[in-house]
Design a binder for these strands. Structure first.
Lengths: 235, 235
DNA sequence: CAGTGGTCTAGACCACACT
DNA sequence: GTGTGGTCTAGACCACTGG
């Protein structure tokens, strides 16, 4: 499964493109279709995906070209572990708290459950190469993840959710703000009180658009940034 | 121009979807194709765009459904003016400086010109409903925008660039960080020194992937956040 | 002008969800 | 099984770029 022609071609082209200089022209769509023995529609699907990912750009009448990859992070949904791996760092965790609490009003609304219902709370200091990078608090509806608190919570929570509970996050709504950390959080992050931090509040949704995770992450401003590419609408 | 069938259908469906409750099923692709007298491929293109925009979600074998729009900002490239308008506020500007300076090393690299070459600098306090929201510093290669300094710089710079110089931004690479503002910036923003702020550094690119604008925006943390939806790759 | 990407069609089969 | 979205094809014409 998951080995469609356009996917295979896309990954093939992604590798090819990585070796080429920016602004180099790719073969034409018709040429690629002939060469890889697929229809032009399939080639176009592959190229569209690469365009969305910021790997190439297309100019009508002229051709398809290798994009300049200065940033070109297409801001996909990643776990902390994946994020750190992509930055070439080794992810880790220090468990601060893992318990069951009653859902407060905002938590309940985020998870679309009744206020006061029990939710699982996991608080962790996330490490990058052993250094504190982020303070992360996760809330999960307890019905969706029975027995979670008995598991090993120092690794990737996403992987655990996927492998054990078969919930796959496919989308998340995020809100990013700048804050200054209070003294309690500062101590956990190993920074001075009043230091700046990036706060990311996220509601994770499954394939059916149902929320099942609400996470607040507090990233050290001196160690972390969010880089991504945005595009004009109606491209 | 720009009135392709899939575009027309997309906007029609966007309006229809806005009236429906979340998780309501849309008609099937074949049904829509028949009803609007287009091919199914055209319907799929429209639905894909809406899916990318976060308006609907699709479940193989089940159907296409109205997404829950709690956030669903697909983080598109917008000007400050557009951004404020979308938030229901009236944008404004107070010009702080507009001059020609020699490009420093980082500026030159961003704009892909020689260090020391002249660049146009525009510094503005951006207002929302008359209140300071953001301190914005824009650098532009002078060759691309001759005579810019003689223009009215209190409105939308993007509109000016588009209408006068025919440069269209289609993509931008952004880096978001949290900072605390120094006393000079604090005075311009009307906040206390050491207040938190969201810093957005952006390099704007035209359709040919050429950089022609580098902007650093400093947003008051108490007035501004960045909300957007992210998706899992290989969807 | 020739050649490129952009749009569109009509039809086919597959993978998956639901009942 | 029936019906859904997902993939793929072969071919056509349009809009635009560039020499």
């Amino acid at each position: 499964m998951a080995a469609s022609k356009h996917r295979v071609l896309r990954e093939q082209l992604r590798r090819d493109v990585a070796k080429l200089a920016a602004h180099t022209a790719l073969p034409t769509e018709r040429e690629l279709a002939t060469r890889y023995e697929v229809s032009r529609a399939t080639v176009r699907k592959s190229l569209s995906d690469l365009e969305d990912a910021g790997a190439v750009y297309r100019v009508q009448g002229a051709g398809t070209f290798v994009a300049d990859k200065t940033v070109s992070k297409s801001l996909s949904l990643t776990s902390f572990s994946e994020d750190m791996a992509a930055r070439g760092m080794v992810p880790g965790s220090r468990l601060v708290a893992a318990d069951e609490v009653a859902a407060t009003e905002p938590i309940a609304e985020s998870l679309r459950i009744e206020p006061g219902r029990p939710v699982v709370r996991v608080v962790r200091v996330r490490l990058a190469d052993g250094r504190a990078m982020c303070l992360e608090t996760v809330f999960l509806a307890v019905d969706r993840v029975p027995g979670l608190l008995d598991r090993d919570l120092t690794g990737s929570l996403y992987e655990l959710l996927e492998s054990t509970y078969e919930v796959r996050l496919v989308r998340a709504d995020q809100v990013v703000t700048a804050v200054t950390v209070d003294s309690a959080d500062a101590a956990l992050l190993g920074v001075g009180p009043g230091s700046p931090a990036l706060q990311v509040r996220r509601i994770g949704l499954d394939q059916r658009d149902r929320p099942f995770e609400r996470t607040t992450s507090l990233y050290r401003a001196d160690e972390y940034d969010i880089a991504f590419t945005v595009r004009r609408e109606t491209a």
